[in-house]
Each structure stands twice: as C-alpha cells, then as structure tokens.
Design a protein around this nucleic acid. Structure first.
Lengths: 338, 338
DNA sequence: TGCGATTGATAAAACCTTTTAACAGCACGA
DNA sequence: TCGTGCTGTTAAAAGGTTTTATCAATCGCA
C-alpha cells in the first residue's frame, strides 16, 4: 500500500507510522542529531514503505538553497549549447541539483524576464552562455546576489569563465599537419570579429611562421568553397594542407578541392574544427578535426557553479579547457578511426 | 537605496516600510481581499522601491503549484529538442512557468533520477520528448500524480501527444513537385522502423500511385548518395524528381546527382525534409524542403501542459501539427526565397 | 543515594507567503 | 439607542521541512 492516497506523503506521515515525532523522523532520515540506531532503521524502513520523498520546496525555503541553477543562453540553434547543457545537467543531477533552461533568443526583454523568474525561484547560481557573436552579456548580470559562471562568453573582470582552449586546439591541428610532413598550410576561418577566430588564427601564425596565410570570412560552407577557389586560381605555389576554422568551412573547402580534381589527402590534407559529427562524418573523406569537448566544458561549469553556490572558493578568471584531435581520413592517417 | 542589504526583501519588509500588516501587504500586492485604493497604491510603491519580489518557493509550497515543469529528453544531439524546448520555454515564461531541462542520454537510471528530482520539486507537469528511435517511454511515466505530455513519442492510449503531421508534410512535398510538372517522383528515406519514415512513405505512395518507389535506408548523406547511384545505374526511365526523407539524405542525393552530371532542378527536382538550415541553405542549389515547425510544436506542448496542470481539460490523443513548405531553388521555383 | 554527564526523543521556532476568520470602526435605518 | 451591514485591516493558521533548545531517562561514579 505505497502512496495510493491522493496526497503526497509528508514527513508527518512517516513520523506517525513509525510512532515517533517529526523531529526524530527528520533526524533519522538525514542522519543528523542523536538517534538510536534501531529507531533510525525503523524510520527509514517506514519512509521507504510509504514512499516518502521530501518536498524540495519546503526544504529550499528553509535552507535558502533551492538546489537548482539557471542556464541562460542566447544560442537558438543549440549546436554548442545543448551538448554543454547536457554536460551540466549530467554532472549536477548526481548532486541533487536541477537545471532551468532559459532560451533568450537574443531578446533582452526575454532575458530580463527569465532572470527575474530565476531569482524568484531562489536559484543557487546561473550559468550564462552565449554564442560568440555578442560577447558582452546583458548588463543586469553584473551585480547579482548569486554566483554566475560564464561559458563561451566573457564576464566582468573577476568572474569565473570557461572557454575551449582555441589556442591549443589550433596548435593541435597545425602540429598534426606538420608531423605528417605538410609545410604549406593555409588557414581558412570565420569572421575576424569573432574572438575565437582571431585566437585560432594567431596560434596558427605562431606555429607556421612567415609563409602563413589566414583568410577570414564567414562560418559557412560557401566561404570555404570560395576561399579554396580563390587560392587555387591564382598563380604560384599551392598549399599542401588546409586548416579550417570550422567543420562547415572544411566541408566547403573539400567540395571545392574535389571540383578542382585535387586529391585529398594525397595532394592536400584538411583539418576542421568542431567535430560536429553530422558534418565531419559525412565529408568525403571523413574529416579529421578538433573536438572542443563541450560536455566536459559543461561538467566543469556545473562543478564550478556548485562550488560557488556552497561558498567554496573557485579561481576567478578565464579557464581554457584543452581540445582534442579527432583523426579521421582527411589527413592521410587512416590508422585510427573514430 | 534598493536592496543594498545582504538579505532578500520579504513581504514583511514591505509591510513594515508601508506601516501595514503583512496580510494587507499581500492583499494589496495581489489585488485580493478588500483594500483601500490609497493603501494599495502605497504598498505597491513601497514594494517597488525596496525591490521586493515574492519567493516562489514559499508561494509554491503553499499553493501546491510550483509553476515549473520538467522536460525529459533522450535526444543527445538536440537538433529536434532544443528548438522545441525553446518554444516551450518561450510560451511558458509569459505565464510565469519555468522549465527544467533533463537530458537522460538514453540511460534509464539517469531518467529515473531526473524523474524523482522533478517530482520532489513538485513540478506541475512533464513534457516527454524522444527521438523517434525508441518510441516507448520509460515505463515509470505511466502512473504519475501529475500530467504528462508527449512530443515525438507516443504515450499510453489516452495520453496527450504531439507530432508533426508527417502525412501532410509528405503530401506538401509531392504536390509541390507535381504542380511543377514532375511525374516520375522517387522517394529516398530513413530506416523502415521509424514510424515517421513509414508515414511519409505511405503518404507519398498515396499521392503518386502505382509507379511510386520508396527506398528505405539510413538517415544519412551517404545513403542519399548511394541510393541515387543505384537508381541512375540501372537501365530504364530515370526519375525527374526526388523527395527525400531528410535534408541530409537530400544533400547526399544532390551530391550524387552532380557527380552524374544531372542538372538540378532542370533534369531532377529535389525536396528535402526538416528545414535544417545549416544543411538546407548550403546545398547547391539551396534546398526546397519541409519545415516541421518545431517551435510551434513546443508552443502547443507548453500550452497543453499548462492547461492540464490547471485541471483544464485537453483533448487526449495524437495531435499532428501541419508542416510548412519552404521553397528554395532545388525545384526550379526561385521566385520566393526564404 | 545523589549528582553530573550522556543519550534519545521532542516541542517549538523558523523559512515566506497566502488565505481564512475575526475584529474595530462607522454609517444607516429602525 | 440599538442592531445591521459594510469597509478596511489584522492575527493566526497553513504549507513541509530542518534546527535549536529543552526535557526525561539512563548511566557512571563518588
């Protein structure tokens, strides 16, 4: 006869069924205070039997910790956000913390509305995520009574922020190409006003030296296609490798190369960035690329907000998490397959 | 001097500042009970001044309605889920309802954990979403004290369920092709064990009659590519149009057609399914396709769970929401552009 | 036996809000 | 003058939990 009634079971029901006071019941269940081992067992057994589960609202009201956090994102498409959010949720559920998802659609009014709702709900913290388009978060986040962690977006000077390590990721790509004997490496990437694009390009320059050429454009296949056409149309030595700023760009580049009858990877090796499986797996040949470890990023952000919400110190500033090289076949290393 | 203290302002602070009892304050703020207009104004002004916001936990505890819902999804990649979730969140935030995001990763243990957390939080309802891979939800959802709405997944017989109207969507595609004078329409789609694939194929058969041929395979570019090669390699009349079960398949098909020097749309018109912009926009020519209106699906699901949680009746059974034809250039109608 | 210490259990307060019932004051009609 | 009805306000209870302070009983020891 577990929980057949219409009402949820309360700790009061447990206490009555176990013939004990509610304080004793509470102490027994939580292992707080002093309780006789035998009593404790009995209470716990009874609680189990009648299907008692503590009301998180009441608990949160008293403890002033709701064990919930909010995730504010302006990423409508979700290619970066959802894997990240899944990581956050995954790591926090084991700590009894749930995640409110708030999609702001880049609408400040909506962002404000969500933020107020989160505060009313006494969330223990907020994770703010933005695509790299507009790096500055809505101002209202600056002076909040709860901790904020930023991912893919830079907060105020002393805030806790997580990014993928674009510099290291780019280096990973270039080093891989060099190890395979490539020397004339071209870089095709997104718009110059994306911080990530600039960092990757800089890292590429540092690794390749003088001959290096970075072409800024769009985050699109079209741009990858166009850039390759441009480069192969002009006279002079052609690159023997292309490091692309995104998998989409890489895809466009590969298509263009095929149109030009350039053999991949024999004539030109290609590396992408994102490890966006639907793209990277479908290029011909499958794309060697850089994985930003979005889930791990979510884990770290989740753990950070958890610590902060408990008042534990977390090192402020930007933490950059290492990227990972995923080897497929576009560089001529078909030994490992993913 | 608004809210400079460390403590959050409570209704008690409002009452004291306005020189009134907390009951009067509550009545004034909520417009309940009898209150003098002048008092009401004063209380509201004071509340505004000191930045009072009611504690949702306390409110929920009393009203037994948390004004929060849970969204349980096993879609790791998020291509369907996140736009849908954004729709849910968008429509509910205006009603003061927030959304817990729970990614189950197809792990029953994780699903159970999330479910229990949601129940402990007294959520007013649950939206269950699955990719179409495993249509049956975890059993534990069957007998819950709160309403459940299913999206992309079929619940028990009398449950409230939302799907895109695959039948109408497929018809839309075929009709469009016919209107453009195409008569030999081929259908390339995903695995036969996906309900959506079967429905679309059936609709296609109904519209095209005897000559119709539906090829089941994978939801991948590769399959689209392969299917086209197969069809164009065998003798006999070639199709003058292809209706693909997904944009990815369409992309593969288009690539294969180009390899065969078949002109698109002159020789063969192509229609996709999903309107997944990153794919549909990047094919050459850009892909005419079917949009499943995921955000609208989210709106409807959100409104349904809202009504149910208020005890208002909602028609049970499967509701299929109409799809929309998005015309680009792969069928030879470049008049409208999206 | 008497006293301090320890153990085990409990009543009550606290968290913050809404709602019910009660109260004081006032005007009005009888 | 005395009920009657209305208005504006308030005290108190309720919601479910944790925590603090208190209390009763037992134990060890002088």
């Amino acid at each position: 006869m577990k929980n057949t009634g219409d009402r949820r079971r309360t700790i009061y029901d447990v206490a009555k069924a176990a013939g004990v006071s509610i304080s004793t019941a509470s102490n027994a269940l939580n292992g707080t205070g002093r309780t006789n081992a035998e009593t404790r067992e009995r209470v716990r057994r009874v609680a189990e039997e009648i299907g008692f589960r503590p009301n998180a609202l009441a608990r949160g009201l008293l403890s002033k910790r709701s064990h919930a956090i909010g995730m504010l994102t302006n990423d409508t498409y979700g290619r970066l956000t959802l894997p990240m959010a899944a990581g956050v949720s995954e790591v926090l559920v084991d700590h009894g913390v749930s995640v409110f998802l708030c999609a702001t659609n880049n609408d400040p009014r909506l962002a404000q509305l969500h933020l107020e709702a989160l505060l009313d709900r006494q969330v223990d913290g907020i994770i703010f995520t933005a695509t790299r388009l507009d790096l500055e978060p809505p101002v209202q986040l600056s002076r909040l009574p709860i901790p904020v962690v930023y991912v893919f977006a830079e907060g105020p000077a002393d805030s806790v922020t997580f990014f993928p390590d674009d510099e290291q990721g780019a280096r990973l790509a270039v080093d891989h190409l060099k190890e395979l004997g490539r020397s004339r490496i071209l870089h095709i990437t997104g718009p110059r006003d994306y911080l990530a694009a600039r960092i990757r390009a800089q890292s590429y320059h540092d690794a390749c030296g003088d001959g290096a050429e970075a072409m800024f454009g769009e985050w699109s296949e079209e741009w990858g296609h166009e850039a390759v056409q441009t480069v192969f149309a002009r006279p002079g030595l052609k690159p023997d490798a292309i490091f692309c700023g995104s998998d989409e760009i890489a895809r466009g580049a590969i298509d263009a190369l095929r149109d030009l009858n350039v053999e991949i990877p024999t004539d030109v090796a290609v590396v992408g960035f994102d490890n966006w499986e639907v793209v990277a797996r479908q290029t011909r040949p499958p794309l060697t690329t850089i994985d930003m470890e979005l889930k791990e990023l979510g884990h770290r952000a989740g753990l950070a907000i958890l610590s902060l919400s408990k008042g534990e110190p977390v090192p402020a500033g930007i933490t950059r998490l290492p990227c990972r090289l995923v080897v497929r076949q576009s560089c001529g290393s078909p030994l490992q397959s993913d």
